[in-house]
């Protein structure tokens, strides 16, 4: 018995996803940058030449090493109180990625919960939740974040809470829309007939099918969170000195713009590269995960 049947197993979902994702050069570049950032963030204590808050009084506003007056002890130069810029940037990657993680986790968790409630219960609960989200959307995001920080007091934790609240409506709306389209499908009806309870329907049956747009939004949410936190830090309403947060570093550096371009240039560049990487990857994920948008 010779069975030389052609075994054409379909590729697993992960492989299929990867083959789509791989075609987008920008997305792969974004992923690469994010991987490097992760390594830098985790390894900052070992990679950084100096502790981030250590002040070298003999080396104030030293230019980058390759310029006149630079010193390879401080590859990217020092700031106005003699702290090594490179070390602060490396530790800043830690702060920024942490901000992204916490904000996205908070807003994703709350957004999914509220979206599921709105989508499953409809009626009064739905109206209440969605009207509340409309109100949050009516305010420009940075303004709302500033208002919340004004109440809670300026600190990194409060800035993260504020940003999580500000981005919440996007997750709620996405979840609700996805739930509404899933709930009409036969498999939901079938499992209801089979006696599945409400919680099972919500979290086991429906939620996994709503995840694709949420994953994309969460990736883009990372970049928004990092950008907004940097903006709040820059306005003095976010992380407080001497935290090596990139936006806060920029605010400190502003007054030295005429004398020391490097203290202004590098932190901003770090923000731009990080945000760009997450946006690139988010776009790639959207193309790979959302069949409707596939080219």
């Amino acid at each position: 018995m010779t069975e030389h049947a052609l075994t054409l197993t379909p590729p697993g979902p992960l492989r299929e996803f990867w083959s789509h994702f791989r075609q987008n050069a920008g997305a792969v570049a974004g992923l690469l940058v994010i991987t490097v950032l992760l390594v830098v963030a985790l390894g900052a204590p070992w990679l950084a030449p100096h502790p981030p808050a250590e002040q070298y009084r003999d080396a104030l506003l030293l230019p980058p090493a390759w310029l006149d007056g630079g010193n390879w002890r401080f590859p990217l130069g020092t700031d106005d109180i003699g702290r090594d810029l490179l070390s602060r940037l490396l530790f800043g990657a830690r702060v920024s990625l942490l901000i992204g993680c916490i904000v996205v986790t908070l807003s994703l968790a709350a957004g999914i919960l509220l979206g599921l409630l709105a989508g499953f219960f409809r009626g009064l609960i739905d109206t209440l939740i969605m009207r509340l989200m409309d109100i949050l959307l009516a305010l420009p995001s940075l303004l709302l974040a500033i208002a919340i920080v004004a109440v809670l007091g300026p600190s990194l934790n409060n800035a993260m809470i504020a940003i999580a609240v500000v981005v919440l409506p996007h997750y709620v709306r996405l979840t609700r829309a996805a739930v509404l389209s899933e709930i009409a499908k036969d498999y939901v009806m079938a499992s209801q007939v089979a006696g599945a309870g409400l919680l099972r329907q919500m979290f086991v049956n429906v939620l996994p099918n709503c995840l694709a747009p949420l994953i994309v939004q969460a990736t883009l949410g990372f970049s928004a969170a990092i950008l907004d936190a940097a903006a709040l830090g820059f306005l003095g309403l976010g992380a407080q000195p001497p935290t090596p947060e990139w936006g806060t570093m920029l605010a400190d550096a502003r007054q030295f713009i005429q004398r020391a371009w490097w203290v202004v240039t590098f932190p901003g560049l770090a923000i731009l590269i990080t945000v760009l990487a997450f946006n690139l990857m988010g776009d790639g994920l959207r193309d790979a995960l959302d069949p409707k948008l596939k080219r």
Binding site: G26, S223, L227, A230, A231, F234, G247, L250, R254, I257, V264, P267, G268, L269, I271, L272, V275, L276, N279, L280, D283
Partner: peptide, 13 residues
């Protein structure tokens, strides 16, 4: 894409 990712306070500086 770069413009969209720009921290405008840095861009201003």
């Amino acid at each position: 894409l770069t413009g969209y990712s720009m921290p405008i306070f840095w861009w201003a500086l």
